[in-house]
Design a protein around this nucleic acid. Structure first.
Lengths: 351, 351
DNA sequence: CCATCATGATGATGCGCATTATCGAGCTGG
DNA sequence: CCAGCTCGATAATGCGCATCATCATGATGG
């Protein structure tokens, strides 16, 4: 019926129809009344009516360019968002982000176009930073690119990270208190009488790993634990080898603490294969979320508050966006929930 | 170190440094040489050098404003997107949408703010159609609001639906070929010797249900099946009652076909409770995706190509967006994949 | 009756870029 | 010696909006 692909209406169209100026329309639309500039309710209503009748919506691009706000929160992930393998990781964060965005009246802009042909992602891929379309951005991902982050900040772009990142200078981020949670797991094991605790740390360093290491060391020295020959870096993809596990057992380990749940699961499998009863002869704990939908005994571990982290990140961001003055970027650490589980028990071996 | 949030360099900065005009910079950056407009290689190289030295990157916002499109694809769901119960439903579509958007260089704008305080959703909440922020929109949801859709179309807004909707006039949508898939399931059962097939259809009518009904009726008449007393409308939330199942069995049913997987699962439970062996004494099939992560025998059913549907919807939309002339909205139906499963077997009962 | 002030607006400008129309200089050929 | 051409580039304009400075009008008050 409509062959003329009717242009989107703009403020000037409204202005003409309403018999006012474009400026007035802009002011009304944005509720920008102030002391020096007033629009009487009647005019305002009239403008609104015309706007509705035309189906007017602000053009976010123009508004950005002119320096305005779009009530858009960007979500940028350093890896592709939905593919299955990433999904379990991102999902809780996204839930929290969506909830907060919705509650605060923002829409979510998911930046998907930044992916290069090789599958890698960079904010500045091809030199283009599309993020600016959003008022601010929540950044997440395991493989955070630090250079990108610093550059973003130096450009004055507002953002909040999910996950702590060590970069020079202040940035807003939300993390989980891995150190305390780790210490709590160790405390639990020590409380069960364990003194020789094997520690399967992450092979590749990252901030979350470092936090766990710090928590472990703190608990260790607090309890006066000796960990000689009990620390083993493990790659998440490989897990520990049977040989390594045997060596740790030979070194007197009565409990195992692994960064990754999947590593703990593999460990459980190996121990079962060796005829080592868990938690009878040996305890196992993980320093992350319990695995999803895996049969077997409930793992001793802690729950990372993913949903809350997403929510808080948005709140941090919005606070930056909505305050007039410059807000010092804030860092937040949320507590994890300890899960006692069924893979840890009292130490039966006398020391 | 930098308290003056160093402005990003712009083309005019390059121009000044390189001793050329902003126009020239734009032309060089965009490779816009033509017959009427030429920049000698030397100048071009010089401009590039200065640009690099300044760390120049195009501002996509400004470029969009000058160009027209903002390379944004909206995603609107008639229900909230991430809460767990909706998630399984939406997830495959989102995967496909993200992949397509990524491949075509668009960003995804997820409309989350459209939810009213009462939790209900409407595109035209408050009379403003935020969807206009995007160049076009993919619409999904079970509870599609037909009025909204018609209005959208009449406003000249470009969109594509995931899922068929009966509305007056042409719209672009992608659906699955439920009718054929349903017929295939029936064929499978008939091939196993079943003649009395109970049909648990959906209690609330919807297009996907109607498609299945049509497919069932087609297969039924093709095979000359008699379904007297074998058709039962079932609400997804309730499932069939034990009484109803008994009645169907008494009516001679040797096989059950249910729209919903969950209904089929409940049915399996009831039959087991009655001591009816599946698939020994009786076959069960569903007309939708196999349930996720549910232990037990694999259900005879079909797989809905959710991912592909999402992808195709984006492609349909982008075709509309990128073509110069008006494109007639197109409808696409994708095939489902039959899953033989383990809940159907030969009919042992002589008829 | 003129200075002052509050009210209700508006014109001009710029955000950073793409595009269109145009222009000057040098060169050719008649 | 100048019309006509090519080469190399540019000034101007507009995209849709926000914002700043300004302005006309009528009321107030001294």
């Amino acid at each position: 019926m409509k062959d003329a692909p009717r242009r989107r209406p703009r403020q000037s169209d409204i202005a003409k129809l309403a018999g006012v100026s474009q400026t007035t329309v802009s002011i009304v639309i944005n509720g920008r009344e102030s002391d020096t500039i007033r629009i009487p309710p009647e005019t305002r209503r009239h403008v609104f009516e015309v706007a509705r009748s035309l189906g007017y919506v602000v053009d976010p691009v123009a508004r950005s360019l002119a320096g305005g706000m779009n009530r858009l929160i960007g979500v940028y992930t350093f890896e592709s968002m939905f593919p299955m393998d990433h999904h379990d990781f991102y999902y809780p964060f996204l839930v929290g982000i969506e909830a907060a965005a919705e509650a605060l009246g923002y829409d979510m802009l998911m930046f998907t176009s930044a992916t290069g042909s090789d599958g890698s992602r960079s904010i500045y891929r091809d030199g283009v930073n599309r993020l600016g379309l959003a008022d601010g951005c929540v950044l997440l991902g395991k493989e955070t690119n630090r250079d990108d982050i610093v550059r973003l900040r130096d450009e004055g772009f507002r953002f909040a990270l999910v996950g702590r990142r060590d970069v020079p200078g202040p940035i807003a981020y939300v993390t989980a208190d891995y150190a305390s949670a780790t210490a709590q797991v160790v405390d639990h094991l020590v409380g069960l009488g364990h003194e020789r605790i094997a520690y399967l740390t992450a092979a590749d360093p990252s901030e979350p790993s470092a936090d766990r290491d710090a928590g472990f060391r703190a608990a260790q020295s607090r309890h006066g634990l000796d960990t000689d020959g009990l620390v083993l870096p493990v790659r998440k993809e490989d897990g520990p080898s049977a040989e390594e596990v045997r060596r740790l057992l030979a070194a007197g380990a009565t409990a195992f603490v692994a960064h990754e749940s999947v590593v703990a699961l593999r460990l459980l499998g190996l121990l079962e294969g060796m005829g080592v009863d868990v938690p009878g002869a040996c305890s196992v704990a993980a320093l992350s979320d319990p695995p999803h939908d895996v049969p077997g005994p409930e793992l001793t571990c802690f729950r990372i508050p993913g949903r809350e982290m997403g929510t808080r990140a948005v709140e941090l961001l919005v606070r930056q966006l909505e305050s007039e003055e410059e807000v010092e970027p804030e860092a937040v650490a949320l507590s994890c929930t300890f899960v006692a589980g069924q893979t840890s028990g009292p130490n039966r071996k006398e020391s």
